[in-house]
Amino acid sequence: MTLDDLDRALLRLLVDDATLPAAALGRALGLSQPATWRRIKRLRAAGVLAGRHLDLDAQALGFGVTVFLGIKLATKGRVSLEDFERAITAIPEVQTVTHVLGLYDYRLRVVARDLADFERVLRRRIMTLPGVGDVEANVLLSEERRPGPL
Rank of each mutant, 00 (worst) to 15 (best):
L6I: 13
Q33E: 15
L10F: 07
A24W: 03
D16V: 15
S32N: 08
A23W: 01
L25F: 02
K41G: 05
G26L: 06
K41L: 15
L11E: 03
T19P: 00
V15K: 11
L6W: 05
T19W: 02
A24S: 15
L29N: 11
Q33C: 06
A23F: 04
V15A: 07
T36A: 03
L6A: 07
R12H: 09
R38N: 11
A24L: 08
A18E: 12
A35E: 07
P21A: 11
D17I: 06
A9Y: 10
A24C: 05
A18R: 15
W37I: 00
T19N: 07
R12E: 14
R27Q: 15
R27C: 03
A23N: 09
A35Q: 03
A9S: 10
D5Y: 06
L14T: 02
A18Y: 11
R39N: 01
A23V: 08
V15H: 15
D17W: 06
L31I: 06
L11V: 08
R8Q: 15
R12W: 09
Q33H: 10
R12A: 13
D16C: 06
L25Y: 00
W37H: 07
A23E: 11
D17M: 07
L13N: 03
P34H: 09
V15R: 07
L20T: 01
D7C: 09
A9T: 13
S32E: 11
L31A: 04
T19D: 06
L13C: 06
A9G: 09
K41R: 12
D7Y: 11
I40Y: 05
V15M: 05
A24E: 09
D5I: 10
L29K: 06
V15E: 10
P21G: 15
P21Q: 08
D16E: 12
L20I: 01
D7A: 12
A18V: 13
P34W: 05
A28M: 10
D7N: 07
D7K: 07
A9W: 09
G30P: 02
L6S: 13
R39S: 02
L14I: 02
R39H: 02
T19S: 08
T19A: 04
A35S: 10
P34Y: 06
W37E: 11
G30Y: 03
L29T: 05
A18K: 10
D16T: 11
A28D: 07
R12S: 12
R38W: 07
L10A: 04
L25Q: 02
R38H: 12
D5V: 10
D5W: 04
P21L: 06
A22N: 14
R12G: 04
A28W: 04
A18T: 09
